[in-house]
């Protein structure tokens, strides 16, 4: 029954297709089959979002510790890049932080909005970035920075299986966040 419910849920996921929008011209963004995805290439100023909305402004946008935003040149809208171009659970702030305060051009996908969160704007996945007039760079810097910070976490498998903070949390609270004993009950019931 549970598996039937899961299949029904997956089938109920909205039909997805890359669509053009107001900022799609010239975009070379690759489709990720996201909800209401829309290719978007635009110029923008890179900002520290906490500074931008609340006026809490450290040097260098927090030097990579904070979420970064894009104030789009065409309309002044604050766009929130939640994701970089790597398909492995990695955000965009690490890729954008080196451009703090600079004008850049970005290319990627807008996703979300009314289908998921009524009344909400879309968020952004940045796939490539360049300073105005410069060379494009892929937004894939995150794993290199993680490897520098975690030299002892070498081994097989992707970073998220080896990250010491995550393995510590799983050891303490289990994969469900309910404790290791609840994991055992779940595994025996589900698998």
């Amino acid at each position: 029954m549970k598996r039937i419910a899961l299949i029904a849920l997956l089938l109920a996921t909205p039909a997805l297709a890359a669509e053009d929008g107001a900022f799609s011209e010239g975009s070379e963004a690759k489709s990720w089959n996201l909800t209401a995805q829309e290719k978007a290439r635009f110029t923008a100023k890179v900002v520290d979002i906490l500074c931008e909305v609340a006026g809490d402004c450290p040097k260098d946008c927090g030097a990579g510790t904070r979420q970064m935003g894009l104030v789009r040149e065409a309309d002044g809208a604050l766009i929130f890049p939640n994701k970089n171009g790597q398909p492995i659970f990695t955000g965009a702030a690490t890729d954008l932080a080196p451009y703090c305060g600079k004008m850049v051009e970005v290319d990627g996908l807008l996703t979300g909005g009314d289908e998921i969160t009524p009344g909400s704007a879309k968020i952004y996945q940045v796939q490539r970035i360049r300073e105005l007039g410069g060379e494009w760079k892929k937004a894939n810097r995150w794993t290199k920075e993680w490897a520098k910070k975690n030299p002892d976490a070498k081994g097989k498998g992707p970073w998220f299986r080896r990250d010491p903070r995550i393995t510590e949390e799983i050891a303490k609270d289990g994969y469900l966040g309910l404790g290791p004993e609840e994991d055992k009950v779940f595994i025996k019931d589900w698998y």
Binding site: N82, W142, D163
Partner: peptide, 9 residues
């Protein structure tokens, strides 16, 4: 947790 550690908001 993977996403939070990875810097996804």
């Amino acid at each position: 947790m993977w996403c939070a550690a990875g810097g996804i908001p």
